[in-house]
Simulated assay, not measured.
Amino acid sequence: MASSTARPTIHGDGPEEEPVARRLLHSAAVLSYDPAVEVDWDTPLDRDFHGASPEWSTLYGTAYWQELTEDQRRELTRQEAASVASTGIWFEMILQQMVLRDIYGKDPTGAGFQWALTEIAEECRHSIMFARGAQKLGAPAYRPRRAVLELGRLFKTLAFGEAAYAAILVAEEVLDVMQRDWMRDERVVPFVRTINNIHVVEESRHMKFARDETRRRLRGAGRLRRQVNALVVAGASYFIVTSMVNKAVYAQAGLDSGRALAEARANEHHKAMLRSSCSGLMDFLASAGLLTRPALAFYQRAHLI
């Protein structure tokens, strides 16, 4: 949280923001997708494909994985992909509400205001796309546990400025690395690859703006403000990342839930995948002064560093 009495905003009205916002508006005008048209929703699910790259499965590399049949492995990755998509909907809804709250009353003629609405529109399409994708994968409605849902409600209400954008950036960056692998993997069912490609292309604009806003909001920030915000970002990131794969996926895939959960928690391969996906992100947080000793504890518990 800021030490200043003035309340920082997510989307400011300053002149520094306008050139970035104008470039992003141009990018959105040139390269955007309509998932309702681009994704093949009509072809029945081909169960000979995975839902995600097997290497990203929480059980990949474990003794249990070696015992699974190919059909079981494919079903597990489909359920895990659906869970990640459902978590994506959750934190995209958090982002949408924070941005809408912030631009209320702002000058609608500014590029920053118009980019904010463009970003919200893209996030709305992504959420619908993820929901339809999870449904087509044959998955139930995976949700974070109740305590995490309520913490998310608190975060979206109170977080602002660099704390808001940096926390969402963590979730977007982790998801981006996963999806770049999945969209290129011919073992993944084609409609999921299309979903991943759309999200990677459009989310790159959101991550660009989030990084710029985080740097700009922290310019001139004092030590206390950085320390507090670093802890807020790390805490939010921990709950977002650890909610990506719901523990219910194992039973839904027909596995021994207790054994699967125990082996997933101890899976060093999956922890290494998460760490490797976050190396650039951790460098950014360190350069912004948001990788403090207390914050490191959260990132280490989430296996992001």
Rank of each mutant, 00 (worst) to 15 (best):
V84H: 05
G12S: 10
A221S: 15
M244R: 10
S287R: 15
R153W: 14
A2T: 12
M1Y: 13
S86E: 10
D256A: 01
K247R: 14
L31S: 15
A121V: 11
G254M: 04
V170H: 00
H11C: 15
T77H: 05
R217L: 13
N229E: 13
E173L: 07
I240H: 07
R215C: 06
A171E: 03
G112V: 03
R101D: 15
E92C: 01
R22W: 07
E55M: 14
V99A: 00
A82S: 08
A2Q: 09
L285F: 02
E150T: 12
A6H: 08
A264V: 01
A116R: 02
K156V: 12
L158Q: 13
I198M: 08
Y33A: 12
I89P: 05
R219A: 15
L95R: 06
I195M: 10
H206G: 05
N229P: 01
G88V: 02
V249R: 03
L175N: 10
R219K: 15
W90D: 09
D102V: 03
V200E: 08
R73D: 04
E173P: 02
E268D: 15
L95A: 13
E70D: 12
L224M: 12
M98D: 04
T109I: 11
G254W: 07
R219E: 15
P144W: 01
L285Q: 03
V177A: 12
L291Y: 08
H303P: 07
D181L: 11
V201T: 12
E17I: 09
R193P: 10
H303V: 06
D46L: 09
F113V: 00
A167F: 02
R184I: 08
A251W: 01
H26M: 15
I103K: 01
A82M: 04
S204E: 07
A36V: 13
G88R: 00
H270A: 13
E70P: 05
G105E: 09
H206Q: 13
E162N: 10
E55I: 08
S86W: 12
W115S: 06
L68V: 07
R205W: 03
V174D: 07
A28V: 11
H269Y: 11
W115V: 04
L285I: 02
E55D: 15
V174M: 11
D185K: 01
R23F: 12
D107G: 05
V20N: 11
S204K: 01
N246I: 00
E119R: 03
K208L: 13
P19L: 02
I240N: 05
M93I: 00
L255P: 01
A82D: 08
A52K: 07
P140G: 00
R259D: 06
A116V: 06
T69G: 09
Q179E: 09
L151D: 14
A52T: 07
M183W: 04
E17Y: 11
D185Y: 03
M1D: 14
V189A: 06
F49T: 01
E263S: 01
L100I: 10
V233H: 04
R293K: 14
R78H: 07
A82W: 05
M273Y: 06
A272Q: 14
S4T: 12
R216V: 02
F130C: 07
R132Q: 14
L169H: 09
E172A: 01
R74V: 04
H11P: 10
Q300R: 15
P140T: 00
H199N: 02
S287C: 08
R225Y: 00
H303T: 05
I240Q: 09
L169E: 06
D34Q: 11
